[in-house]
Every structure is written in structure tokens, then in C-alpha cells.
């Protein structure tokens, strides 16, 4: 079974815009974080797909994907810590309630 590259790119693009949509519409910070993870994963799919289809001889894309997963884990930890602290101070994790930086 041979799946063309465009199919995979279509899936990753769909995933990217689903993440984008989630990021802009959800007010809950944890949901927004999840949306960001979707965006990251769409990028990962692109890396792996390009690696496999265009440069099958080397593994650069795969390694990048591994890096991104590791960084995403660290980022999630930081983001969760921020969200917990935000909850402690504001009793809410709704982004609409956190607008102190408004000019």
C-alpha cells in the first residue's frame, strides 16, 4: 500500500488548523495547552513524512521529532506549573480573567 505524501500533509495541515482553532476559541488554559500539543504534533508528522519520502537515507527528521516531543513534555510541565500558580492566585484558569497586562 502506497500512500502519497500529499495525503499525509493533508492530515497534518488539518491537525494544525484544528489546533489553531482550539487555541483561539477555548478559554480554558488547559484546553489551550492541549491545542498547542496538537499543533506540535502536526509539525512532527510533517517532519517524519518529509524525512521518509524525500530523504529516506538519513534520519534528521526523525531526530527532530524526538527533540520536539521531549521539549513538548518540558513545555507542558512548565505550562502546567504556570496554570497551577495562576489558579492559586486567581481561583480560575480562564484566560478572560487574566487581563492585568492590558494597556
Amino acid at each position: 500500500m502506497n500512500i502519497p505524501l500529499t495525503h499525509i500533509l493533508f492530515v497534518s495541515t488539518a491537525l494544525f488548523f484544528i489546533g489553531m482553532y482550539g487555541l483561539f476559541t477555548r478559554r480554558n488554559l488547559i484546553t489551550m495547552l492541549m491545542a498547542i500539543e496538537l499543533i506540535l504534533n502536526s509539525v512532527n508528522i510533517n517532519f517524519v513524512a518529509f524525512n521518509k519520502y524525500l530523504y529516506p537515507d538519513n534520519l534528521n527528521g526523525v531526530f527532530f521529532t524526538l527533540f520536539i516531543i521531549a521539549i513538548a513534555a518540558a513545555e507542558a510541565a512548565v505550562a502546567i506549573a504556570i496554570i497551577i500558580n495562576l489558579y492559586r492566585s486567581h481561583r480560575s484558569i480562564d484566560v478572560e480573567d487574566v487581563r492585568e497586562m492590558r494597556g
Binding site: 483561539f24 478559554r27 489551550m32 484566560v95 478572560e96 487574566v98 487581563r99 492585568e100 497586562m101 494597556g103
Partner: peptide
């Protein structure tokens, strides 16, 4: 231009 600085992350 300060209105641009809405404070809203999204």
C-alpha cells in the same frame, strides 16, 4: 496604540 495591548492571550 495602547488598545492593542489588550491583555488577552488569545
Amino acid at each position: 496604540i495602547k488598545a492593542w495591548q489588550s491583555g488577552s492571550v488569545q
